[in-house]
């Protein structure tokens, strides 16, 4: 389970990845550390620039807002102090999106997990120093207070509230964007479910666990991807 991922689809960028979930496909490219414009230069850390391009048309205020959200997440993931006075440039191109008519607030929040996951995979592919592993999930709460992880379009269109959360492998909440109509109890339940799903995505898959909860949301999809990537990276040793 988990989204479809391909590593390093772009030859020119330092790091790149595509990720397709049931709602969005995102192509992410990372360049860095590269030279930074004088006015953006930070004396003690690397500047992070995120560019988001929508599937059609050019970006507007909506993309500026999404960029600022993604930048803040990446800043807490990257070890920015290791490359002072440089720039880490992340470009996120949306390639497909939901076809159903969604409310704007729902649409904005539903895209965030895909953007964060894509950006993270591209950072890994680019070999940038990271302080933690981050996973983002989307959750929707229906009118009957049923919480669903990775909701389908239909569930999103009729949901009461929608939540995008990102957790590190230790279960620290890095990002929360919730909109709709909800109360604190609902949010706490959502946060619990999201934390479990995010931690499970990078958890060591022991056989007991898989027997106990072989559910879709508990699949360590991100760990599998990263392990596979690490194996590919050292494959040359086996050939020599």
């Amino acid at each position: 389970m988990g989204p479809d991922i391909s590593h390093h689809p772009l030859a020119g960028a330092d790091g790149s990845a595509t990720i397709s979930s049931n709602l969005y496909s995102v192509l992410a490219a990372v360049n860095g550390p590269i030279e930074v414009q004088r006015r953006d230069e930070l004396p003690e850390e690397a500047a992070i620039e995120v560019n988001i391009r929508p599937a059609s048309g050019v970006g507007g205020p909506r993309e500026r807002w999404l960029e600022s959200v993604v930048t803040a997440v990446l800043r807490s993931v990257l070890l920015v102090h290791m490359h002072p006075r440089t720039l880490i440039q992340v470009t996120l191109q949306l390639t497909t999106g939901p076809t159903l008519k969604l409310k704007n607030a729902t649409r904005d929040i539903s895209v965030l997990p895909s953007l964060v996951n894509a950006a993270f995979l591209a950072l890994v592919d680019g070999g940038l120093p990271l302080q933690s592993t981050v996973t983002a999930v989307l959750l929707a709460v229906s009118g009957e207070e049923v919480i669903s992880i990775d909701p389908a379009e239909k569930e999103l269109a009729g949901c009461k509230s929608v939540h995008a959360l990102a957790y590190t492998q230790h279960g620290d909440l890095l990002l929360n964007e919730s909109a709709g109509n909800f109360n604190l109890e609902v949010w706490e339940e959502v946060a619990d479910r999201a934390e479990k799903a995010c931690v499970a995505a990078v958890a060591l898959a022991s056989e007991d666990d898989e027997m106990a909860n072989g559910t879709a949301e508990a699949a360590p999809w991100l760990r599998r991807e990263l392990e596979e990537k690490a194996r590919d990276a050292v494959a040359w040793r086996d050939h020599t």
Partner: peptide
């Protein structure tokens, strides 16, 4: 239910 938006980054 009270909450309309929670934004944390």
């Amino acid at each position: 239910d009270g909450l309309l938006r929670l934004e944390k980054t």
